[in-house]
Design a protein around this nucleic acid. Structure first.
Length: 577
RNA sequence: CGGGGCGUAGCUCAGUCUGGUAGAGCGCACGGUUCGGGACCGUGAGGCCGGUGGUUCAAGUCCACUCGCCCCGACCA
């Protein structure tokens, strides 16, 4: 392809509305153009990159035994009513009406459609398993789209679905998908990690996320350097907690109120009372769609709202406001406690129940109670782990200590179980002629997000440094002195040779000054650069260099094609390893 | 949705406080000089100052409403 025949327009300055590096670089390098918040056009360069990424995904899906299909982007409301998600999914689902006022949505995911296909076709265990995927534009009306392609509303996604006669068979497909995902991200040359994840509102039993490691990642990952345990903080477990130190105050037969004027925070109260933060019971009032809940956790720990949502089986929750706290507990924020707290569900983390003696708020202004004994002075309705794991906590699997990293979620695999097959009556007859629910898996991979993540992870102050397998073009051939006829002739000749050799090359045939061209090459980040200029040509040479290190290797003009093939092979081998 | 900020030339931004002829840099067009790391000189095109309504002799500037965009929080590939 010639530059003059495609559409590449670079910007000198950063766009004003882009914050993260991948977004800035994609706009500056002429990869994407914004149409509306969270909605972008993929310009020719991005389109090529996405096509390469998609090709890798297709190969690996084939390897995992998945067949490609294409489902509609627009889906009828009745399918979503059938699964129950028309009401569950919330405003993130873009709902639309046709001219007859019939309701539809723009598909954010396709469990309903594929389950509908399978339930109408598959009736026998002999037809299972089923494994299909598609690569398609999805729309999710995100509360807050941001960071360009990292969290767009419209995005390109590969979604696969499998249907099985039993859990063992699902597990086989799940493991094959995990392997396929690892191969995709490895082949793209990305540094990533696979972690245990929460299943979120998609539902199901087991789930893993694939995270591209980058400082700007929106997810926090906890991992153990010793045993390779890794999990999203939302999901992370920890080893046994360090117990609270011995109770430093006199023991009491019953809780005793003490004045704590203006001592609200855990630190203030524990300092004031001369106890450790771990001796306090933190009492948080949450508002949920099921009503209010008081959540108790040890003072030095935090609450994981995802775990809490799962424990309460609710869709949404938030901390109650000051007035609500006053109404429910009788005391202001900062002075809540479980002793004598009635008319509200009481949920305690095990860390609280393990305390021998504790201090808590008294549900009264400027007052706390000390000498509180769990199960004597209060009894929770439910004891469940809702603790937020953090860096420094013990690993749940070994003696190690968890560390935190940031990641961009580029893939997520789920064992769905029978959630959708049950709701939508997707059944088959087993060998005994008994009707059974199919068990399902679903597997998402953000294609456009992976492209953004690749840039997020591979750039320098000059621009993008594409990993070879997802670069829009592997090689750029730069004509340097377009005013010199012999240089133009040589460049044209070399371009022909490279094309004939099947090399993925872009020919920068623009009559621009060298500086402009060099800067554009660096900004766009083609892995391999061939410069044809008068200077080298006089010696019968052209200049070959890698974007990565910029090191220039003079190459005899007659040996250009083999030389380019050689560096491409080197780059490919590196990624294989 | 709550909190913060911004809409002026294709892009990045001044000008708004204190109302009085619409600005700069880059980009673009033309001419000339340049030509291996974003050249220089000259000439020029390009604006409903996001929109609507109001105040005023006069509004980019003040007021009200509205639309769009960005950032921080709850969602997710």
């Amino acid at each position: 392809m010639r530059w003059s025949q495609t559409f590449i327009h670079t910007l000198r300055q950063d766009p004003a509305d882009a914050e993260v590096i991948s977004h800035r670089l994609m706009v500056r390098a002429g990869l994407i153009a914004k149409v509306a918040a969270g909605i972008y056009s993929y310009l020719p360069l991005a389109t090529r990159s996405l096509a390469k990424l998609s090709a890798i995904v297709r190969e690996e899906m084939a390897g995992a035994g998945s067949a490609e299909l294409a489902m509609p982007a627009v889906q009828p409301a009745e399918l979503w009513r059938d699964s129950g998600r028309w009401s569950e999914y919330g405003p993130e689902l873009l709902r639309i009406k046709d001219r007859h006022d019939r309701e539809f949505c723009f598909g954010p995911t396709h469990e309903e459609v594929i389950t509908d296909i399978v339930r109408g076709t598959v009736t026998s265990y002999k037809q299972l398993p089923v494994n299909m995927y598609q690569i398609q534009t999805k729309f999710r009306d995100e509360i807050r789209p941001r960071f360009g392609l990292m969290r767009g509303r419209e995005f390109l996604m590969k979604d696969a679905y499998t249907f099985h006669a039993d859990d063992e068979d699902l597990d086989l497909a799940y493991r094959a998908m995990e392997r396929a995902y690892r191969r995709v991200f490895s082949r793209c040359g990305l540094r990533y990690t696979q972690v245990e994840a929460d299943t979120g509102n998609i539902g199901g039993s087991e789930s893993h996320e694939f995270m591209v490691l980058a400082e700007t990642g929106e997810d926090a990952i906890l991992s153990c350097p010793k045993c390779h345990y890794g999990a999203n903080v939302e999901k992370a477990e920890t080893g046994a907690l360090e117990p609270a130190p011995p109770w430093p105050l006199d023991p009491t037969d019953a809780p005793r109120e003490v004045d704590t004027p203006d001592q609200r925070t855990i630190e203030e109260v524990s300092d004031f009372l001369g106890i450790a933060p771990a001796h306090l019971v933190k009492t948080l009032i949450f508002e949920t769609d099921e009503g209010f809940v008081a959540v108790l956790i040890r003072g030095d720990l935090g609450v994981n709202e995802i775990k809490l949502k799962n424990a309460l089986d609710c869709l949404h929750l938030q901390l109650a406001g000051e007035q609500k706290i006053l109404d429910i507990t009788g005391g202001p924020q900062g002075f809540s406690g479980p002793v004598g707290l009635e008319n509200i569900r009481l949920l305690a983390d095990p860390s609280v129940m393990d305390l021998e003696v504790a201090a808590t708020g008294a549900n009264k202004d400027h007052t706390h109670v000390v000498g509180v004994v769990p199960n004597r002075d209060f009894t929770p309705d439910q004891v469940v782990d809702v603790r937020l794991a953090q860096a420094g906590d013990p690993c749940p699997r070994c003696e190690g200590t968890l560390i935190e990293k940031r990641g961009i979620e580029v893939g997520h695999v789920f064992k769905l179980g029978t959630k959708y097959s049950k709701a939508m009556r997707c059944t088959f007859l087993d060998a005994d002629g008994e009707e059974q629910l199919m068990t399902m898996g679903c597997y998402g991979l953000g294609v456009s997000r992976t492209m953004a993540a690749a840039i997020e992870q591979n750039h320098d102050d000059k621009g993008i440094i594409w990993p070879l397998p997802v670069a829009p073009y592997e090689v750029v051939l730069v004509l340097l002195n377009s005013d010199k006829e012999e240089v133009v002739g040589a460049a044209e000749e070399l371009y022909g040779q490279l094309v004939d050799a099947g090399i993925d090359v872009l020919f920068d045939d623009r009559p621009e000054r060298p500086g402009v061209k060099f800067n554009d090459m660096d900004l766009i980040g083609f892995p391999v650069r061939v410069v044809v200029g008068k200077r080298g040509l006089d010696n019968g040479e052209v200049e070959l260099s890698l974007r990565r290190d910029g090191e220039r290797r003079s190459t005899p003009i007659k040996e250009l094609v083999p030389a380019v093939n050689a560096v491409l092979d080197e780059l490919r081998e590196e990624i294989e390893d």
